[in-house]
Design a protein around this nucleic acid. Structure first.
Lengths: 186, 186
DNA sequence: GCTCACATCTTGTCAATGGAAAGTTATGCT
DNA sequence: AGCATAACTTTCCATTGACAAGATGTGAGC
């Protein structure tokens, strides 16, 4: 291992994701990440400025990944319902990213790259509402989209918080069942 | 101010709620709470053991308050929809409590008092589903309840995270509109 | 009204953390 | 080859959570 790590930025993000997935964002320690990567405790500061900077990068990465997943599902299935399932699946398979994404108090919420990625996620979600056959989207596309988003988001966060007992390992089917309770028409 | 504070436990919980509502749970400092209450930095430990102990108490208090609010709404209106509105209103008016409640990594999730309070909240919520006229609740009460819970919870958390732009000051009416998108029958 | 057990709070201390400052080593561009 | 700069280290400081030991008030029983 030379003086230069080579890909420290990526290594730190990966270590952060792992740590958060295991012990939550509250227990995250920059110094611990540095130790895992085999660098000094001040090395992370060079790439991310401070702790919030690292979490900003992690959240932005999360929004990018989510947007990509949603776009892919839309292209592959064209199904409004499956878009919600993908949302929930993303939350469970990218737990660390997802948990940070909706906690603006943990990162720099004004970061341009993050805001852009967030908008791309949002656009990918709402585009699924626009796909609905005429009339099914109801009078207000924004309202229908918000309801779908809320339902998927709520199920995902409740799942992650462990508030739902007696659930199978994978939430896909449970999510699908819950999402079917949505009435597209307002 | 004598040697004994008089009601330190309550004062600390109130200060914690205020601090969290302003800067989020990540910025919470036991020593700062002690300073605000005018006691030494080690005083909180006597009442709550450690930081997680304090947050456990705060979360338990939150579940109690939520259960009470839900029961009151059910008694006053008997409306399934208004139960969801109350849920959202609780989240916005008791922001600190609500944010901690769904973050088990911040507190002692096995605490018996907390679990009991959590179950009371849950029961109050699901009782609203059981109130629905026969047939409207669908085949599975649990599933309908979970969908309603997810929808209200998702809207509330998205609202609190600031992810919803262009929203009025009070979310009541917006919440009502979103909650109407739920189909009780599965 | 005394005493003694106990709850409450303070002072002192420790290891760990985030962050800043200043120095060291590699890298890439010309 | 030389130089600006990116990448990383070492050193240092204030703050924090937790623990231990001591000080102070409180109240029950006699």
């Amino acid at each position: 291992m030379s003086y230069h790590h080579g890909d420290l930025r990526r290594a730190l993000l990966a270590a952060a994701a792992e740590s958060i997935a295991e012990e939550g964002p509250a227990a995250l320690s920059l110094r611990d990440l540095a130790r895992r990567a085999g660098v000094s405790h001040a090395a992370p500061a060079h790439h991310f400025g401070d702790k919030r900077g690292l979490l900003t990068a992690l959240a932005a990465e999360g929004f990018e990944l989510l947007a990509a997943a949603l776009r892919e599902t839309r292209a592959a299935t064209g199904s409004f319902l499956e878009l919600g399932v993908t949302y929930v699946r993303f939350a469970t398979t990218h737990r660390a990213h997802f948990e940070v994404m909706w906690r603006p108090d943990l990162y720099h919420a004004e970061d341009p790259a993050l805001l852009a990625a967030r908008d791309r996620s949002s656009a990918a979600l709402y585009s699924g509402v626009a796909d609905l056959p005429d009339g099914q989207a109801g009078a207000d596309v924004r309202e229908t989209g918000l309801a779908a988003w809320s339902l998927a988001h709520g199920f995902a966060t409740l799942w992650l918080s462990g508030a739902l007992p007696d659930m199978p390992e994978l939430p896909d089917e449970a999510a699908r069942a819950v999402l079917r309770h949505l009435t597209p028409a307002g």
